[in-house]
């Protein structure tokens, strides 16, 4: 039950984009088409879940025993970047279909702050392994939800001819993101 609450919380209540404001760069950059947004979303789910597991293990079994907790930022970045590259190489060889659908987004996510953010949240909250995994997965699903919703809205906005010229493109995307963020605040009473 607690895990279910955490899952809902990480998807809606503490949505990584709209509530924590992490991962905004690809959120704005790759959200102009729904198809691409979907690919990005799946890649993020994959990378966040996978890298959270690795960073959790490295923190608990390497940094904590040696009292090197203060090195977590460096260590996490190193682990995430190396891991994503490794997965990309292996995937390209072993699973070309999967690589074609999401592998091209992998390098873009390597240094995404959302990925590092989840690892740091897991560490700060001292989650155990299962809880950390649920949190990571939920956060990534929340990211996908956000970027696909945003892409859907932006596709429609593209068609709007009456929009004032200075607002077209990124400005209206930023306004939209702000309004969506306000809308997501409505979830904040859902879970204590």
């Amino acid at each position: 039950m607690k895990l279910l609450a955490l899952l809902v919380s990480s998807i809606f209540v503490n949505n990584i984009v709209f509530m924590r404001f992490l991962g905004c760069c690809p959120f704005l950059g790759v959200s102009s088409r729904v198809e691409t947004a979907k690919g990005m979303g799946f890649a993020v789910i994959f990378v966040i879940t996978f890298s959270s597991a690795m960073t959790w293990l490295a923190f608990e079994y390497l940094l904590v025993p040696l009292h090197l907790e203060y090195l977590y930022t460096l260590a996490f970045i190193l682990i995430i970047a190396a891991l994503v590259q490794f997965v990309e190489i292996v995937m390209k060889k072993m699973m070309p279909a999967l690589y074609k659908s999401l592998g091209i987004f992998l390098p873009l996510i390597t240094t995404n702050c959302a990925v590092l953010g989840v690892a740091v949240i897991n560490m700060n909250e001292r989650y155990d392994f299962i809880t950390a995994m649920v949190n990571a997965f939920g956060t990534a699903v929340g990211y996908m939800l956000a970027i696909v919703l945003m892409a859907g809205i932006r596709e429609k906005l593209e068609l709007c001819d009456t929009m004032p010229r200075p607002l077209r493109g990124l400005p209206i995307a930023l306004v939209t993101a702000g309004l969506m963020s306000i809308a997501f605040m409505g979830f904040s009473g859902l879970i204590r």
């Binding site: 390497l62 090195l71 260590a75 190396a82 590259q85 490794f86 190489i89 292996v90 390209k92 060889k93």
Partner: peptide
């Protein structure tokens, strides 16, 4: 040692992977 070690391990891993799984 930890950071250097991690770096070396990952470096070797990637070098190995890029040879082994070259496409």
């Amino acid at each position: 040692a930890v950071m250097g070690g991690l770096g070396v391990v990952f470096g070797c891993l990637l070098a190995f992977a890029s040879k082994k799984f070259a496409v």
